[in-house]
Amino acid sequence: MKFYGLVDGSDISLRNYLNTLSGVDQIGAEARAAMLATRSIKTTAKSWAIETAISMVDLTTLEGADTPEKVRALCTKAVRPNPADSTVPSVAAICVYNDMVDIARKQLDLIGGKDVAVAAVSTAFPSGRASMEVKIQDTQDAINAGATEIDMVIDRGAFLSGRYIEVFNEIVVIRELCEGKAHLKVILETGELVTYDNVRKASFLSMLAGADFIKTSTGKVTPAATPPVVLVMLEAVRDFHEMTSHRIGVKAAGGIRTTKDAIKQLVLVNETVGADWLKPSLFRIGASALLNDLLMQRMKIRDGYYPSPTYVTID
């Protein structure tokens, strides 16, 4: 059923729907996230969490200075994060700008990384300030180049000025382009939406319009994937599943740099939506520096001591 039968695609039905959402109490949400951050994850649970977190990483490079060589190096790392240990799982995806999609896909295929997806950031990432024609072309280019995941940004300006239907329609159009070819992740850029009420509203709007994933941030704005923001998005996903039986994924991106940060995210998932979401098809962590810390912690558990940082590769 179109839009899950919850809205009919008109401005008024979308507005009415968003108005039914309960508010989010800022202090309460932050207190809940802070409480869950005290969970102490040790021994077997820690090993499991590190392994799972590695497999959920969207290894990301989104710099003006990106070159084919840099992207190829990252692909190698994505497939085999620790060259000295083949038991380390591959990451979930490589996340790059459009012009690097083709290079990344070919390199991954070449080195046995067929299961590692290539995600392209899209729709005039990171600001989203471009015409719809440009956004469509942007996405089409990425799909043509072999991207199987599209990380689109929403028009925050439209959202903040209350033009929800514009944001909705953009997602619907991009969703149609992706149909059957690519998974769609919708970036809310929560650091610009600011309030948790907005985060909840934008989460529902994106899910109704057809997002496969909702994603916190571009990584270009702070704050990004703070625990309370991720909590509020996970609650939205949980409620949406209750209503529609559809499981929407969540991607936390931006500011997750240490194993401790990543484990906190997994605890949030575990105690909000539950264990069903603890897999790369429903939870991702967008990061670059995080992977090395996960690898070092993994070696520490294996060997009993922290390795020198020279034992992890810098790409």
Binding site: R39, S40, K42, T44, A45, W48, A49, L266, V267, L278
Partner: peptide
Amino acid sequence: MTTFDYAPAP
């Protein structure tokens, strides 16, 4: 271990 069972953390 296939799920996220928190190990004892006394």
